[in-house]
C-alpha cells in the first residue's frame, strides 16, 4: 500500500516552543487523570508532616506567627519538590526509559521539554499547596491577612519563574549523571529546607548566610510572602519586600539565561562524552 505523506510544514520557533511545552505536559496530565488516589495521598498526608513541626513549635512555646510560617513553608515545599523531582532529575528517568535520545534529537528546545514536564505536574502541585494552606490554616488556627494582594501575586510569580529557571539549570547537570542522580536529588531536599528557611525566618541564620541563601529563589520569595500575609511578620523579615521583589526579578533573568546557556553546554558535553544514552544503573 502506498504512503503519500507530504513535507513537514515549518513551525516558527515560538510556536514550536509552546507546542512542545503542551505536548510534554500532556503525559503528566493524563497520568493524574488515570489514578486519582494521588489527590488524597499526595495532598492530605503531607499535612501530617508539617503538623510535626507545628507541634514542636507549640511544645516549645513559640509565638503563633511561627505556626503560620510552618504552614506557608509547608505549602511551598510542594513547588520545590516539583522542581526537584518533576523537572531536574526527570532527565535521568527519561534516559532510563530511552526517551532522552528522542528529545535531544527532536528540533524542539530542551527548555520547552523541561517546562512541559514541570507544568504537567503543576495541577497536582498547586492543589497540594492550596490544600495545605487552607486545611493547615484551619487545623492550626492560622490567620492569613493579605496586606497587598497584587504584590503577593507578583512575588509568587517571580519566585516560580526564578525557581523553574533554577530547576532547568540543575536539570542540565542531571544530563551528565547516572545512578547518582536520584541520590543527589534526594540530598537536595533537607539542605534547601534548612537554608531557605522553610520552617523558620531565614533572618535567624545571620545576615551573610541568609544573603547567600537568597540565591535560591524560595528564600526571598518565602520571606516576602510571609511579610505580606502575616501582619506581624515584618519584624521577622530578612529584607524589605521591595528589595526582595527586585532581587527575585534579577534572579529570574540570571536563571533563565543561565538555564539556556547551561543546557546547551551540558548537552554538548554529554554528547562528547557519550553520556546521553548510556545507562549505568
Amino acid at each position: 500500500m502506498a504512503t503519500t505523506v507530504p513535507t513537514l510544514p515549518k513551525a516558527s520557533s515560538w510556536k514550536l516552543f509552546f507546542k512542545t511545552v503542551f505536548a510534554r505536559a500532556y503525559p503528566r496530565i493524563v497520568g493524574q487523570q488515570c489514578e486519582k488516589s494521588w489527590m488524597f495521598f499526595d495532598i492530605f498526608l503531607p499535612i501530617l508532616s508539617i503538623a510535626a513541626y507545628v507541634y514542636v513549635y507549640r511544645a516549645i512555646g513559640a509565638p503563633e506567627e511561627y505556626i503560620g510560617f510552618v504552614v506557608l513553608g509547608g505549602a511551598m515545599t510542594a513547588f520545590w519538590l516539583n522542581v526537584l523531582w518533576s523537572m531536574s532529575s526527570q532527565l535521568y528517568w527519561e534516559k532510563e526509559q530511552g526517551n532522552l535520545a528522542l528529545y535531544i534529537m527532536a528540533p524542539s528546545s530542551m527548555m520547552a521539554i523541561l517546562l512541559g514536564m514541570a507544568l504537567g505536574g503543576m495541577i497536582a502541585t498547586l492543589l497540594r499547596a492550596i490544600v495545605i494552606l487552607f486545611i493547615g490554616g484551619w487545623l492550626f488556627q492560622v490567620r492569613f491577612v493579605v496586606t497587598d494582594f497584587w504584590t503577593l501575586l507578583l512575588v509568587f510569580f517571580l519566585t516560580m519563574t526564578a525557581l523553574y529557571g533554577l530547576g532547568m539549570m540543575s536539570a542540565s547537570l542531571f544530563l551528565l549523571l547516572s545512578r547518582e542522580a536520584w541520590h543527589l536529588a534526594n540530598l537536595a531536599q533537607e539542605p534547601i529546607y534548612l537554608i531557605s528557611g522553610f520552617y523558620f525566618p531565614v533572618k535567624n541564620l545571620g545576615f551573610w548566610l541568609a544573603l547567600s541563601a537568597s540565591l535560591i529563589p524560595l528564600t526571598m520569595g518565602l520571606d516576602a510572602m510571609r511579610q505580606l500575609v502575616f501582619p506581624s511578620a515584618a519584624q521577622f523579615g530578612f529584607l524589605d519586600v521591595r528589595i526582595e521583589v527586585i532581587g527575585l526579578s534579577v534572579l529570574c533573568f540570571i536563571f533563565l539565561l543561565g538555564a539556556r546557556y547551561l543546557l546547551n553546554y551540558m548537552e554538548k558535553l554529554s554528547i562528547q562524552e557519550g553520556r546521553l544514552t548510556e545507562s549505568r544503573r
Binding site: 513551525a11 505536548a23 500532556y26 503525559p27 526509559q97 528522542l102 527532536a106 524542539s108
Partner: peptide, 26 residues
C-alpha cells in the same frame, strides 16, 4: 531503534505518536 520500549505506557498509541509529532512542529 529496535529492542527499545521508549514512549509512555500510560498514553495510548495515538497520544504517544501525537506527542512526538508536536516536538517536530506538526
Amino acid at each position: 531503534s529496535g529492542g527499545e520500549s521508549s514512549g509512555y505506557g500510560l498514553l495510548t498509541v495515538r497520544e504517544n505518536l501525537w506527542m512526538f509529532a508536536q516536538f517536530y512542529g506538526l
